[in-house]
Amino acid sequence: MHDTQLVMYEEDFRKVLAVTQRLVKDANAKGIFVVDRNGQMISEAGEMRGIDTTSLASLTAGSVAATGGLAKIVGEEEFPVHFHQGQRDNLHITLIAGRIILVVIFDDRSSLGLVRLRVKKAGAQLAKIFEEIQKKAEQSQAQGSAGTPFAEITDEDIDNLFSV
C-alpha cells in the first residue's frame, strides 16, 4: 500500500519549526532542514537561508533512497544516519520514523558528537509530531475530507493555471 498523502496544517508546522529552531541552537548548527522522504522541503531554520532548498530537498531524498537501496542489498533494513564531511561544512542526515529526513549542516563551531546527541532528542520529538500528522491524515482520508479547498477545484481553475 502506498503512503498516505502528507497534509500539514499551521499548528503542525509551528511544532516542527519550534523543534528545528531549538536544534539550531542546541547543536550549534548552521542550518537545519526537515525534508519529506519523497523530496519535499517541510521546514528550515538557521543561517543558511537563501540556498537552493528545493534542490537540497530533492537530492537529500535521492541520497537517502539510494542508501536505503544499498542497505537492503547487504541485508540491513536501513542506514538511518549518514554523515558527509567537507572542508568547511559537514552534513548529518538522519531518517526519522521511516518517513522524514532531518538534515543538519554544521561547521567547526560544533562537533559530530554534539550534533548526534542533539539530533537524537529532536528526532524523537519530530517522530512524535509526524506520527500525529499521519494519524490525522488517515482519519481525514477515511472521512473523505469534504470541505477541503480542493474538493471545489473546477476545470476552469485548472485551465487558468496553464494560461499564465
Binding site: Q5, L6, V7, M8, Y9, D12, F13, N38, Q40, F150
Partner: peptide, 9 residues
C-alpha cells in the same frame, strides 16, 4: 503522494 502545506499554502 502530493504534499499539501496549509502553513505556506
Amino acid at each position: 503522494m502530493s504534499f499539501i502545506n496549509y502553513s505556506s499554502r
